[in-house]
């Protein structure tokens, strides 16, 4: 994406709340949630690791913020970085233990982690138990809580833009480039032989991804005014993976595109029950089988096919 396009997109996102209906703003907020999660997930996918329980980190961020504000009376503003921090700490410990695993072993370990996180919150009544915790307060600005869609859109936008900017920027550092060389055990040994601290880099990258995921999770809980173990369960983890895959894993914007399109599409498919899952899954299969670069690759493929000069 060129600077001009990014600037235009940003401008559109800033103008949007002044022209959109409350419903369109609701959709925009949900899109921003999913786009940020998926971009963060992509940072992990990019180094060859499949995080099959990423929603566990959303849950950690969300619950941290909710416990702080509902049980301990801490300001919801403080809960936002705190949620990111807790998610990051868990990612650090878990990453140190599991990032040595490769391929499916790592994927299943993180999957199990996601299951255990939700089982934990379900087990203890102080954490809301299976029913969850209602009455989550939203942060206040100049003494007024951000109750409307219009008001709450702004913190969500700020975290989304900051998170995505950080993830984007990291890709083009030496650190980000080095991560690409760690996709297999052999290439990792090679990288280490030229002085790349592979284990540290992988853990650092995983932590960054989960901090951003957890931070957005706090806003997600504040937006819903509610958390329970089910909201951020394994279905959400799979959904994020589908968004990323449908958008395309070849570049930074693919997963973001996939998350945006599928989330917006999902909002239109409320009345159809199973057909919604079927539509998602069918899109996924078509993309995987005939469009390996994902939807982001579609314009290039079309140009190549129809030979439009450019």
């Amino acid at each position: 994406m060129t600077v001009a396009r990014v600037a235009a997109l940003l401008l559109a996102l800033i103008v949007l709340p002044f022209v959109a209906t409350p419903y369109a703003l609701h959709v925009a907020i949900v899109v921003l949630f999913n786009v940020t999660y998926t971009a963060a997930l992509y940072a992990v996918l990019r180094m060859g690791y499949l995080s099959l329980g990423h929603a566990g980190f959303i849950a950690l961020g969300a619950y941290t913020c909710v416990i702080l504000s509902v049980r301990l009376g801490v300001s919801p503003w403080l809960g936002i970085p705190a949620g990111g921090l807790v998610a990051g700490l868990f990612a650090w410990g878990l990453g140190a233990l599991t990032l040595r695993l490769r391929g499916i072993y790592f994927a299943l370990a993180i999957f199990a982690f996601g299951e255990i996180v939700t089982a934990f919150f379900r087990a203890f009544d102080w954490f809301g138990g299976p029913a969850g915790i209602p009455g989550v307060p939203r942060p206040a600005f100049l003494g007024t809580p951000l109750a409307s869609h219009f008001a709450f859109y702004w913190p969500v936008l700020v975290v989304a833009v900051l998170g995505i900017a950080i993830l984007y920027r990291l890709q083009y550092t030496r650190f980000g480039a080095a991560l690409l060389t760690l996709k297999t055990a052999e290439s990792e040994r090679l990288a280490e032989s030229v002085g790349i601290p592979a284990a540290r880099y992988k853990t650092a990258n995983f932590v960054v991804s989960c901090v951003i995921t957890g931070t957005m999770g706090t806003l997600h809980a504040q937006y819903l005014l509610f958390v329970n173990p089910q909201v951020f369960g394994s279905t959400m983890s799979t959904d994020l993976l589908i968004y990323a895959m449908v958008g395309g894993l070849a570049g930074f914007w693919g997963p973001i595109l996939g998350a945006g399109l599928l989330t917006a599409l999902g909002e239109q498919l409320f009345s159809v029950g199973y057909w919604k899952t079927l539509v998602y899954a069918a899109i996924l299969m078509v993309v995987i089988m005939v469009l390996p670069g994902g939807l982001a690759d579609l314009p290039r493929r079309l140009r190549a096919h129809f030979g439009a000069p450019r």
């Binding site: 009455g135 509610f226 089910q230």
Partner: peptide, 10 residues
């Protein structure tokens, strides 16, 4: 009942 914690504010 389980979804009402989330919807009652709305």
């Amino acid at each position: 009942a389980a979804v009402h914690g989330a919807v009652l504010p709305i």
